[in-house]
């Protein structure tokens, strides 16, 4: 007889394991093979793919680039999302319209919106440079310079995912208890002090959750790069997932890309775990 506690957990656990187990084991096996465009088979070449990976500067550079990119985008998303949530938190004229509008970008398909954004940033036919030239700026090499391409990707990521932060933080704000605010009001605390001493600490747990989830998703950044810059110019916007894609599906070096994937996966799990612990200690002041 199935015990209740197993009745709840096992269906999901087994389903997920069943779906994910074969691909995972298979990837590990392939990473020790020379599977490529010419020979599709599971031969065994030892750790050659892994040895190659250590000398692959393009991969390590892409990891470094990803760190910068996700740090910048997630920070911006958090700060902007929090500010927007605070702005429409209390009852206000037009508040609901703002709320709905602010949520919309996260509902849209990244590949599709990136196609639109690419036309926006088109340097001679798009509106971005056109509008800037009206105030005497430009033309900005949006997609043709390293910095420009990086910034364009950041802008699109911020546009797409700030709503996610906004949603989580606003839901948190709405459910905050009233008592601490009454106490702060009685103390005559300034709005700034109330924020730092009441709101921010109360919001810490939800902030951590939101940041971690966003970091996980941001680390996979792919669709935007795929459509807008193809990793270029040069390698200026090449992230690990895009690089793995180039190696695995464009060049069809399946064996090597499996090794890259696993290395990437291990690195990500370690990094994200550390970040989660550090955030916990920093924001909540306790260990979990």
């Amino acid at each position: 007889m199935l015990k209740p506690k197993h009745f709840f957990l096992l269906p999901a656990l087994l389903t997920l394991a069943a779906i994910i187990l074969f691909p995972l084991v298979f990837t590990v096996r392939v990473s020790f093979s020379s599977w490529d465009v010419y020979q599709a088979g599971l031969d065994f070449i030892g750790g050659r793919n892994y040895a190659r990976l250590f000398e692959d500067t393009r991969f390590w550079e892409s990891l470094l680039r990803l760190s910068g990119m996700s740090l910048i985008t997630v920070t911006l998303q958090y700060v902007l999302g929090f500010a927007l949530a605070l702005a429409v938190w209390k009852k206000m004229r037009g508040g609901r319209i703002f709320r709905v509008l602010f949520l919309v970008p996260m509902m849209t398909t990244p590949v599709v919106m990136s196609v639109i954004w690419r036309t926006v940033f088109h340097e001679s036919l798009g509106p971005a440079n056109d509008l800037l030239s009206m105030v005497g700026i430009g033309p900005v090499p949006w997609l043709s310079s390293a910095a420009g391409a990086f910034i364009s990707v950041v802008i699109v990521e911020v546009w797409q995912w700030t709503p996610f932060m906004f949603l989580l933080l606003l839901a948190g704000l709405v459910s905050l208890p009233r008592e601490p605010y009454l106490a702060a009001a009685i103390d005559g605390a300034s709005p700034a002090r109330t924020f730092w001493q009441v709101t921010f600490p109360l919001m810490a747990p939800i902030s951590i959750g939101a940041i971690i989830i966003r970091l996980i998703e941001a680390s996979k950044i792919m669709d935007t790069v795929y459509v807008m810059t193809s990793g270029g110019p040069g390698t200026a916007t090449e992230t690990p997932s895009y690089y793995i894609y180039i190696r695995g599906l464009r060049d069809f070096q399946v064996g090597y890309s499996a090794a890259l994937s696993l290395a990437y996966l291990v690195l990500m799990i370690i990094t994200l775990t550390i970040i989660a612990k550090v955030l916990m200690r920093f924001l909540v002041g306790k260990e979990t």
Binding site: A12, L16, I20, F22, P23, L24, F26, T27, V30, I216, E217, S219, K220, M222, P240, S241, I244, Y245, G248, L249, V254, S257, A258, S261, Y264, L265, M268, I269, L272
Partner: peptide
Amino acid sequence: FISQRIMPPIVLAIPFFLM
């Protein structure tokens, strides 16, 4: 459970295809 989200889709594209 949550770690499954860390995996970029391309990693699993070919294994999923074969499966």
